[in-house]
Design a protein around this nucleic acid. Sequence first.
DNA 1: ACAAAAGTGTTCGATGTACACCCATGC
DNA 2: GCATGGGTGTACATCGAACACTTTTGT
Lengths: 251, 251
Amino acid sequence: MVIAVSTVIFALRSGEAESDHDPARPGLWLPLVRRIRPPFEGQWALPGGPLRRDEDLEAAAARTLQATTALEPSYLEQLYAFGTLDRAPASASERVVSIVYWALVDSEEATRAAETENVHWFSADDLPDLAFDHDVIIEYALWRLRNKVEYARIAHAFLGDTFTLAQLREVHEAILGRTLDPANFRRQIEAGNTIVPTGKRVTGTSYRPPKLYRYNQAIEPVDRGPLGSSARRRPSSDGAEASAGPPDSAG
Amino acid sequence: MVIAVSTVIFALRSGEAESDHDPARPGLWLPLVRRIRPPFEGQWALPGGPLRRDEDLEAAAARTLQATTALEPSYLEQLYAFGTLDRAPASASERVVSIVYWALVDSEEATRAAETENVHWFSADDLPDLAFDHDVIIEYALWRLRNKVEYARIAHAFLGDTFTLAQLREVHEAILGRTLDPANFRRQIEAGNTIVPTGKRVTGTSYRPPKLYRYNQAIEPVDRGPLGSSARRRPSSDGAEASAGPPDSAG
DNA sequence: ACAAAAGTGTTCGATGTACACCCATGC
DNA sequence: GCATGGGTGTACATCGAACACTTTTGT
């Protein structure tokens, strides 16, 4: 019996017209690796690998992310543990239990993400055939992401240090797949004091220059569930299963 | 490296005055087992055990539940996978990754739950010292339960086939730890058509007899995330007895 | 008739949504 | 000035909390 750790990695990419609509609007992309051995040889799959004996689960997820994208995740959370008996074809020599994480990577840096023969980025709207049930896993990760963006402060994980409200709104729109009212979005964000204005503005626009904001680090960066690190927060509402890494215990 | 599966089992118990307030109000209780070997020998811990080679994760959780309470869970969902290196004392011979489930058992039947020298039920408000970080795990499970009862139809997992609105409200109150307005609760429940009136009423009351309701099986039993839906649904009793687990896949 | 809980109606504030409108800048 | 997106104001529907009130039974 083997424990593997895989990660669904999301980044936001603009342009790259390929999807159905408005090519200017950014969308969700994720890197997949080509399997180089059976089962499912040649098919695309989530990056991952066996858990090392001296390695935390989360560290293993970060390692696979590093190995494929060469980037640091700005957000990392456990998704689910998959362990039914039928996950691999009968030909498989040993049973595998996969603990899957999902991660967000910074949009700016994602542009220099590694892309090789066996590592390729795909639009979340246009995925190839995947090995195992990885399509289901990605579907689940997408659901979790969309759910969580509505109540947790994770959208900024796609952006740099400073950003305009329009950029933040674009992130939300890309994740949710629909447009949002700029006026109402502004008020909702301002209502929580999750962001704080830097004094600066964008320059070089052909219109009124927008203010630049920064995330308010004083506030808990994101609701990762009651166990997130040592301090526990009272979450407003958890859309579903949630939380990142609670400490641990054996049993 | 070993994979273990543990389960946080919740039941609702009335009376048993022991807590702080109103002894008539039911509260959350859960069974713990006494460890009979190091580490933490003699301390209370979550029921669980090693995952068998030919056993699904969910089946393993159900098995531990069966072993301790001798009851079938009316709800079973994966909670989290715990796997940090420091979960067991250094003395431990091997590293353990625990995949923890949480379950709800029917309140009526829970009264005949097994209680032995090494299996004891505790009030969730009054837990003993626990082995490992099981206190944190239980805290997390409680948080998840309280969170989920507000948007998913899980409360009925504590009740029998038919029930009054007052009973359903009591379940919610016990989980949330506060009283709810009967009038508003009625409307909220009736708004979703999650329950359907049986023609019957309770008899033998000394006041106006309340209607008996039954859960509407036609509706998705519970929000288990996007994967619960796509996959199979248990045709059994009222449908709430499944788990949250997405099917699975390897990698 | 009375007590007790079932069940109904109404008001109020918070929140989300739609949309009209003004503001500031580059051209 | 004009176009464009930044930013503000406002009206309306929805939803949950609070609470007064009526109904129905057993005793």
